[in-house]
Design a protein around this nucleic acid. Sequence first.
DNA 1: ACCTGAACACCGTTCAAGT
DNA 2: ACCTGAACACCGTTCAAGT
Lengths: 218, 218
Amino acid sequence: MSTRSSTPGRQRGLSRRRIVALAHEIIAREGVEALSMRRLAREVGTTPMALYHHVRDKDELLALVMEAVAEDLPRPPLPEDPRERLVAVCELMREAFLQHPWVVAILARGRLVGPSAVWMTEEILGSLVACGMTVEEAFTAHRTIWNFTAGDVMVTAALRTEPEDRSPTHFVESQVARQGAETLPHLGALVGRSRELEARYTYRAGLEQVLDGVLPRR
Amino acid sequence: MSTRSSTPGRQRGLSRRRIVALAHEIIAREGVEALSMRRLAREVGTTPMALYHHVRDKDELLALVMEAVAEDLPRPPLPEDPRERLVAVCELMREAFLQHPWVVAILARGRLVGPSAVWMTEEILGSLVACGMTVEEAFTAHRTIWNFTAGDVMVTAALRTEPEDRSPTHFVESQVARQGAETLPHLGALVGRSRELEARYTYRAGLEQVLDGVLPRR
DNA sequence: ACCTGAACACCGTTCAAGT
DNA sequence: ACCTGAACACCGTTCAAGT
């Protein structure tokens, strides 16, 4: 990592590291949509085209930022019990995504998770096998757990950034008001409580239920 | 719907309907990222600004297209048995999203599902209650099912649009090749079979497992 | 090898003006 | 009421040229 610069002197020229670090900073402060090659160039003090000498295109830059984020992820000791370990890794994974919600959008566009994050996949597969599954079953179970987690992150991130500013009354209430409680009896029964119930929902509880369905019966 | 134009003569002027229909067409043919106000104006034969007389902004236009899609959704008769009904609605929902994968990205940005699609939510809640849950439990279970479904659509859509063109060897294979089978024993055990296993995964099977965990024990 | 300048082909949206 | 033209403040990227 620090092979040639023993002096703490600021590295003035461009470099992949500096570009990726600043890109990360912009994204962290203002979201992915705020990152543009031109803006990044301005902030780093060059022309847009200088950047293209260090990264192939914007897509590669985003992948590099993702990888940098994954490298900094904490890797605390995990519980011995396989199911507890499973839950712990999944919660770490969800936490990581919620701290960097833009990653989900990139993953959704077909990117694959980078080398620095595979240990999570390995850990999940390992825990599933330790719960009594074959590797093949574990592969399938992993996909189900990942689907659930990705969806939860998507929904939770959306709820956080959009504090009802376009629907002052909540979804349930406005739909029931529009269509009447006769056609929507069950939604109707939730009027007034949906917000509270939604706030009470936890990833952990949902995950436990998913695991109840996925893991072999004890 | 057809109140004033009994003649089949083409409606020449602009109108919300025409704008929304053409926007939908562009998205269907080339994806959301192909839709721009300027492109739409060109194709409809006006200036970009003429559009703003019929829709507030691009966001509203997208919401209108979403609503138009929801209106055209099939609503076939559903099974009597509550669990079967649940599965049927969820599969309809998933099918609908896979046919219009761009909707997921918009929903992810905080948009709420429009009036023409609420019947699905109502049907899911109703089936859950018919399975023996309270409305409150049904609300929570709905969120878990929705998380799973949204995630599955995201992953499936990504796999379809990106037929490995940036990773000729599959994820598992390339990661194991890079990091070695000692650090990734379980991923290592899947080398050569991941592609096939992935192709074998079905939403239906995953959903059944999720339901096993979510529904009250029979 | 690394960087610059000008250009190409785009964006969403505002604002003042026309009929 | 409905539409136009010009403008503002942006994009990602290519290409030829400079040091």
